[in-house]
Amino acid sequence: MIEVLWIGNPGDVPTGFAGSEEFDVRCVPVEEADGAAQKYRTVDCVVYDPEGGTEEEVLGVLESVCDRLSEVPCVAVGDVEAFPEDAYVLDHVPKRDGWVEVLSDVVSAAVTERSHTSYPVPEDEDRRLEKVEEVGDLELRDAFDRMTEIGRHCFDADMCFVGVIEDRREMFLSCRGGSLDELPREQSVCTYQIVEDGVTVVQDILDDPRFETRERLLELGMRFYAGAPVKVGGVHVGSFCVMDAEPRDLGEDERRILTKFGEEVAEKIRLITERR
């Protein structure tokens, strides 16, 4: 069932939508939008009905929802005249004949196709996330500390880590040279690594259009990134990576060794899985 956070007058939620077997709808009034965006962080989609709202109210809701739930599809319904220009990208279904059917189609497609992300998603994402969940159950935190310690020195890098890309965040199983626990998926370079087959090299993050608005990533102060796939059961669950504060490149031998580190991580995960 698709979990929908409906922001608007509870009395205005159409029964054809709220009563559908496809959607589990939680409705909160506009004045509770900010708290709801914090409380219901795992919802699949937000529907916002701004009926009668002022531009100030609309902007407040969009800031709460689109900032806190930036990776969640957001669909506005009804009158959007009060929407500020150039604020956020969201979908819109006006309330006209048949609008509930249109809204149902739009919400369903947005969630299943992940069509509101600002980054590419692997084609086998559903299968990939199933494997990521299995890996998450293994409690692997700190299991790769020696490997990342060696990797950091081997590549003379400021930071070395093993990251697993979940649905909306990257979890760091081990990180040397930094204290990262997690990053929103859209802020992570590994998000782009997992859609590639081989080693990914970003010579200078500051010179790459994919990262120019990724503030959390830029706050790390890292310029160089290299990541190799960690594939478990043939599925790309995450990456073995190094980062450095200075821009640079990676030679062919270094790419080969980084690949080996990724394969070693995958092999260790496989052995831990077998021992359970």
């Binding site: 990208v89 069509s115 992300t117 600002s118 994919r210």
Partner: peptide, 16 residues
């Protein structure tokens, strides 16, 4: 990134 999300939403609507 904003352009990607915009185009992602639009291609999603075309699919729907």
């Amino acid at each position: 990134n904003t352009a990607y999300r915009f185009l992602n939403v639009l291609t999603g609507r075309i699919d729907a």
